[in-house]
Every structure is written in structure tokens, then in C-alpha cells.
């Protein structure tokens, strides 16, 4: 890790598999020998609300489950407006952002009460708030695999492909077997490979 503790925020909307994705990432990092703490923030609603997982990774210490303001090193956003919500509070000039471009409108927007920002302006804001930003059509790729929820694993693949965190197929497969079930390994590894390909610059 380039920094200790290394702070990751995984942001998205309820129902996108944010919590499970972070858990898998955390399990891999613990197996690699790190101390990992994950905190989750979500409202009372099962779906549709903002969901944010905070992950602290350290070689030496167990950190608290919430990241202090402006201390995120990496933001993985499963939805673009959620990327901005997180960057505004936890971002700093060195934050790297990986964003799924598929928008999910809040009920406040679908009802016509609020406007969702224009796509170009939103992307520009994310770029302005990040040291580096990766944009991925993860939901579209996940739908090709048959399930939009796989976008979370595609995003983890992208983080690995960009060389931000080092995660191997073998490590991820082990975490899936131990935390979800063996019959979910294949499809998730496919998703991981797709994500990895999307950011691989080699």
C-alpha cells in the first residue's frame, strides 16, 4: 500500500451489492496479512438509499470503522452521483476514483421534484475532485453476464486491473467460497476478469 492506513470508500445505492463487494475485498486483504476494518453507513431503507462502506487497511493497526473527513485514498463508486457525494466529504487532491457510469435516479428525481445533474457536468466534477478517475460501463457489462449486481465485482476487477490494489483470481475465488458459496465463483470470476480488462493499461 502506498499509505498506511490506506482508506477506501465503496459508495453506491442500496441493492447494488456494495456491502458484499467490500466484504470480499476485505477478506482478500486480511488473507494477504493486513488489518482491515470495514464500516457501513446506510439508512433504514432496504433499497434506493445511499450506501457507503468505509474500509481501512493497515499493516500494523486495527483502525476505526469510519474514515476521517477528506482522508479517502480510493473511492469506488457504483453510481456516479454517489461518487460526488463521497468525494465532497472524504476526497482530497490525491484521491483516485473508479466510477460505474450507470445512473440510478433517486425517487426525488423520478418523481420530478429534483433534477439529476447532466452527465457531462457530473463526470467533469468527478474528474475535478480526483487525482485520477476511471469511468466504466460496469452495469452494462454485468447485464451482458445476466445480472446487474455483478457490477460490484467488475469494479473490483477494474481496481485490480488499474494496479491500485493487487488482487488475484485465486484470492478472490477463495473469498467467494468462504463468504458466499462455491457455486458463485465462476460467474464472479468472469465479472472480475471483465473489470480487469477494462482498466488494464499494460
Amino acid at each position: 500500500m502506498e499509505k498506511d492506513p490506506y482508506n477506501v470508500v465503496v459508495a453506491g445505492v442500496g441493492g447494488q451489492g456494495n456491502v458484499l463487494g467490500t466484504q470480499l475485498l476485505g477478506a482478500v486483504l486480511v488473507d494477504q496479512g493486513y488489518k482491515v476494518t470495514i464500516g457501513e453507513t446506510y439508512g433504514a431503507s432496504q433499497r434506493g438509499g445511499s450506501v457507503m462502506s468505509h474500509m481501512r487497511v493497515s499493516m500494523t493497526d486495527q483502525y476505526g470503522p469510519l474514515i476521517p473527513p477528506r482522508c479517502a485514498d480510493l473511492v469506488i463508486a457504483l453510481e456516479p452521483s454517489e461518487a460526488v457525494r463521497v468525494l465532497a466529504q472524504y476526497g482530497n487532491p490525491n484521491t483516485v476514483t473508479v466510477v460505474n457510469t450507470r445512473t440510478i435516479f433517486p425517487v426525488d428525481v423520478t418523481s420530478g421534484n429534483l433534477a439529476y445533474p447532466e452527465k457531462d457536468a457530473l463526470m467533469a466534477k468527478i474528474i475535478a475532485l480526483s487525482k485520477k478517475a476511471f469511468f466504466l460501463e460496469a452495469t452494462e457489462k454485468a447485464l451482458e453476464l445476466g445480472n446487474p449486481i455483478l457490477a460490484n465485482i467488475i469494479m473490483i476487477g477494474a481496481v485490480s486491473g488499474a494496479g491500485i490494489l493487487s488482487i488475484t483470481e485465486v484470492e478472490l475465488a477463495k473469498a467467494i467460497r468462504e463468504n458466499i458459496s462455491s457455486d458463485k465463483v465462476d460467474v464472479n470470476l468472469k465479472a472480475f476478469a471483465i473489470g480487469k480488462e477494462m482498466t488494464n493499461c499494460d
Binding site: 445505492v13 441493492g15 439508512g43 433504514a44 431503507s45 432496504q46 433499497r47 434506493g48 438509499g49 445511499s50 452521483s81 454517489e82 460526488v84 457525494r85 468525494l87 465532497a88 466529504q89 433517486p106 425517487v107 426525488d108 428525481v109 429534483l114 433534477a115 439529476y116 445533474p117 457536468a121 457530473l122 466534477k125 475532485l129
Partner: peptide
């Protein structure tokens, strides 16, 4: 920034 680019997500029943 949040007000301009990240509209609130009010609690709602699922679809």
C-alpha cells in the same frame, strides 16, 4: 457540492 451534483435519496418503499 453535494447539493449541486448529488441529489438526495429520500427513503422510499422498494419497487
Amino acid at each position: 457540492i453535494i447539493e449541486g451534483y448529488a441529489p438526495q435519496r429520500s427513503m422510499a418503499f422498494c419497487a
